[in-house]
Computed example of a mutant assay.
Amino acid sequence: MYITIQSFNNMHGSKPLKLDGLIKLVKEPDNKYDAEAIACEMRYFGKIGYVANSTNTVVIGSMSAGRLYDKINDEYFAKIKFVTGSVALARVLTSDEYIAEVENPESDIHYLSDNLGKIDVDFIKKNIRGEADDSQL
């Protein structure tokens, strides 16, 4: 499942965006502009943008913040796969990829996560595309 990340309007520009860079996704239910806002954070840079949530900003074939919102925990992770200008496409980690990041002592996940190891992996398996069994489709 791919998502569009936008709004790199900060002092870093698109500098943090490197291929396979780990992105922390954080729900912002109290965001005054969008109740389904999902902020994107990276190690060393902090908040770098948001998951796109408008038909004008979501890249075709990727998921909007509104569609992703109920499929992830309050905190989850994705990896950057494509970068062009001020837009990046990231792939949401599967539960197995999340576990591999947690088990890797060199992963940025250890610096980004507030809930390391506490994410409900079964919830992710049920909701992230490609992990559901046929009875859930």
Rank of each mutant, 00 (worst) to 15 (best):
L17V: 13
T84Y: 11
D114W: 14
Y69T: 00
A100L: 09
Q136P: 05
Q6L: 11
L137C: 08
E131M: 15
K24Y: 04
Y44K: 13
V51H: 02
K27G: 01
R67I: 12
N31K: 00
S14G: 12
D96V: 07
L89E: 08
D70N: 15
A100E: 12
S95W: 09
A37H: 01
S107K: 08
L19M: 12
K15Q: 11
N31M: 02
I38H: 01
N73E: 14
V92N: 09
Q136E: 13
G117V: 05
A52Y: 01
P105K: 05
N104D: 15
S86H: 12
L116D: 05
N115S: 11
M63F: 08
R129I: 12
D34N: 03
F123S: 02
S62T: 15
Y33K: 11
A88E: 02
E28Q: 00
I5H: 01
R91W: 05
N104E: 05
K118V: 06
V26R: 02
D134A: 15
Y50K: 03
T57Y: 12
L17G: 11
D96F: 09
K47M: 12
T55Q: 07
D133K: 12
I124H: 14
S54A: 06
D108F: 08
Y44N: 13
Y2F: 15
A52K: 01
M63N: 04
K32V: 00
V58G: 00
G21T: 06
S62Y: 06
G21N: 03
V83Y: 00
A100F: 11
N73C: 10
R67T: 14
F8C: 13
E101R: 10
T94W: 13
G49V: 10
L112I: 02
K15G: 08
N10W: 09
I80M: 01
E131D: 10
D114L: 14
N115Y: 11
M42D: 01
P105A: 07
G66L: 07
Q6W: 10
L137M: 10
L17A: 15
L112W: 03
N10K: 13
K27W: 00
P16R: 04
I80Y: 02
V92R: 13
N56T: 04
F82V: 15
M11C: 07
N56H: 12
K118D: 11
I72D: 13
I99K: 14
A100V: 06
N31E: 00
S62M: 10
K71P: 02
D120T: 04
T94S: 15
P29G: 00
A132Y: 07
T55N: 07
K118M: 13
N10R: 13
I38Q: 00
T57M: 09
I60M: 14
S113H: 03
V51Y: 01
P105F: 06
S107D: 05
Y2L: 14
G21M: 03
I48D: 00
F77K: 10
F82E: 07
E131F: 06
A78V: 08
I128F: 06
V87I: 15
F8E: 10
K81W: 05
I48Y: 01
D133P: 12
I38T: 02
V121F: 03
K71A: 05
V92H: 14
